[in-house]
């Protein structure tokens, strides 16, 4: 999948905005939103929030997790843990990129937040790489993808599943059906669970 498609999926997340205009309810395929009252926060999909913001029609209320202390904690947790930690949001990268892209002035400490989110992303990506390599080396036959976000899973999609398919194919076709290959069959059964 293309990153833009994932961005599209992430744009459906609900986010809080404070409009500076009043308008009736609007009816969208994904639900009805409004009525808009100037100065009163309400929930809308992210794409609508971005669009309104670009037209200077609203202020975006940054999500709870888009806070320096919260992110600092997540980053420390992510650094300490061997496994992936739970992210505050399934589409944290998409949300951060879009909100900080159009509404940086609505987020306090936006430049620090930008940096720290990128740090978290980098830590997770490098962790993903090392655990992929470890998974392959250990000969595990499956990996657990707990707490990985869609964007991260997508980045390894062309590589990992096809490599594991191939490994399986090599194991099954190269193994001789005779008893002489007993030593190799024990080898392939040692698939261990690896937290990836």
């Amino acid at each position: 999948m293309d990153p833009y498609e994932i961005e599209f999926l992430g744009e459906n997340r609900i986010i809080s905005v404070i409009p500076n205009f009043s308008y009736d309810k609007i009816y969208l395929i994904c639900g009805e939103f409004g009525p808009f009252r100037a100065g009163l926060p309400l929930n809308v999909p992210l794409w609508l929030a971005i669009m309104l913001k670009q037209k200077q029609k609203c202020r975006i209320v940054p999500p709870d997790w888009m806070d320096l202390d919260v992110l600092e904690n997540i980053k420390e947790e992510e650094k300490r843990s061997r496994f992936f930690t739970k992210m505050p949001n399934e589409h944290y990268m998409v949300e951060a990129k879009l909100i900080l892209g159009v509404a940086a002035e609505d987020v306090p400490n936006s430049s620090e937040i930008k940096t720290i989110i990128k740090d978290i992303w980098d830590i997770r990506m490098s962790k993903l790489r090392t655990s992929m390599d470890a998974l392959m080396k250990s000969g595990g036959s499956y990996g657990r993808l707990d707490h990985l976000t869609l964007m991260e899973i997508n980045s390894v999609k062309p590589l990992l599943p096809s490599a594991m398919d191939d490994l399986h194919r090599i194991r099954t076709t190269s193994k001789r059906p005779t008893t002489a290959s007993l030593n190799t069959s024990t080898f392939s059964q040692s698939g261990s669970s690896q937290n990836i």
Binding site: M136, K137, D166, L167, I170, S174
Partner: peptide, 27 residues
């Protein structure tokens, strides 16, 4: 090719080498 010729290997070690090589070269 290794998958094809592995059955002609009397000692049956080619299969293990193939797998091992694949794992190592994934990096």
């Amino acid at each position: 090719l290794g998958c094809y010729v592995a059955k002609h290997d009397i000692k049956g070690e080619v299969a293990a080498t193939l797998e091992n090589t694949f794992k190592q070269r994934f990096r």
